[in-house]
Design a protein around this nucleic acid. Structure first.
Lengths: 196, 196
DNA sequence: TTTAGTATACCTACCGGTGTATATACGTAA
DNA sequence: TTACGTATATACACCGGTAGGTATACTAAA
């Protein structure tokens, strides 16, 4: 059997994504990915240089969709920066209800991979986080908020903090607490509920 | 050769702690722990039921010292809740400078271990986080702050968020942003810089 | 016929874990 | 004090399973 190379590659990546995210990178063997993708291990090594490259490709593939999801969570609601930021944390609170939710794939990859081995995945994760922070900065600056670089950074901290706490406690209350904190910070920096 | 059992056990735990924290739990074999502890693997399995039990014991051993460190970071400075909370994040900003710093061992364990396997370490991590949150709650209530449960929760989010971001970016700026956010939240909830 | 892609089978290293022999500390009785 | 028995503690050697990775033969499309 032989589909196109691109199709096979996508199937491998999809299987890898599911398993890596669900069980953790080091807990998933290349054999397991092969079985999930209904492909032999040799085929995986035809398409990817090794497990590390597969992991990097997995994170790379997650980057754009996750970023888009975060942005959509905010822009899909009409309203000020405060209301949109609240929507962001509301989405988080919603996600934790699903047992399949396992936190942020990028943060988990960094937590799992020893830094000194400079795994290619580490840079991908850092770029992902930096990208959303930059997007937030623009968003807040567009609303004319004071010190949007600091504000964006603080929202990132709240976001990843809420994810971490929810992963540990499996309790949406942390997303709600983070939402309230975000609203407070935004209003202090000049945001009002009704502008824009 | 034979020291006391307690001494050997401590040596194993010390070695396990160093390696698990430095490289990640799944990246460290029992053999590696044995070598680091200058003990044979069989000795480890005499003292611990298995790797899972060793991991649990490692986290259990970290609980009290880490908690004490966090509390000391706050109580060692004179001043209001705001000043003490700032000191907490200042300690974090200091730690990230060390290359040996690898974030929160509890959060990393949770990120690395698949939840559905209900590894004993997961509960230990959750209890640790809950314990510091409870302590913060008491601390803030003692200062007469509004809604100390919410406030404590928000500080926890900022704390673990700052740790996550710093682990990813290796940049103390996130601890500083978190410190500023914490100060803002505290003052909104009734804290002043000079009370107490 | 060539060549990109897939399958079978296999390799070596190392994983967590164990069977068993041995060495030492310590309570007990002469 | 000494001799001894026993529980405790460590060492050595080993196990089956599985990890990441590969040699090679085959297959199907161009």
């Amino acid at each position: 059997m032989r589909g196109t190379a691109e199709e096979t590659r996508r199937r491998i990546l999809k299987a890898a994504g599911k398993l890596f995210y669900d069980r953790g990178i080091r807990n998933v063997s290349v054999d397991a990915v092969a079985e999930e993708a209904e492909v032999t291990k040799r085929t995986i090594y035809y398409h990817f240089e090794g497990k590390d490259a597969l992991v990097a490709a997995y994170l790379e593939a997650r980057n754009a969709p996750v970023l888009a999801g975060l942005q959509r969570a905010m822009t899909s609601v009409e309203g000020s920066a405060i209301e949109q930021t609240k929507a962001l944390f509301a989405m988080l609170a919603e996600q934790v209800k699903s047992p399949a939710w396992k936190g942020c794939p990028f943060a988990r990859a960094v937590a799992e991979l020893p830094a000194e081995l400079d795994h290619p995945a580490l840079e991908i994760a850092a770029n992902h986080k930096a990208a959303f922070e930059a997007w937030l900065r623009e968003r807040f600056a567009a609303d004319g908020l004071d010190d949007s670089p600091l504000l964006a950074r603080q929202i990132m901290v709240l976001l990843d903090g809420a994810i971490t706490e929810m992963l540990i406690h499996r309790d949406a209350a942390y997303a709600e607490a983070a939402a309230a904190a975000a609203a407070t910070l935004l209003s202090v920096h000049g945001a009002s509920v009704h502008d824009r």
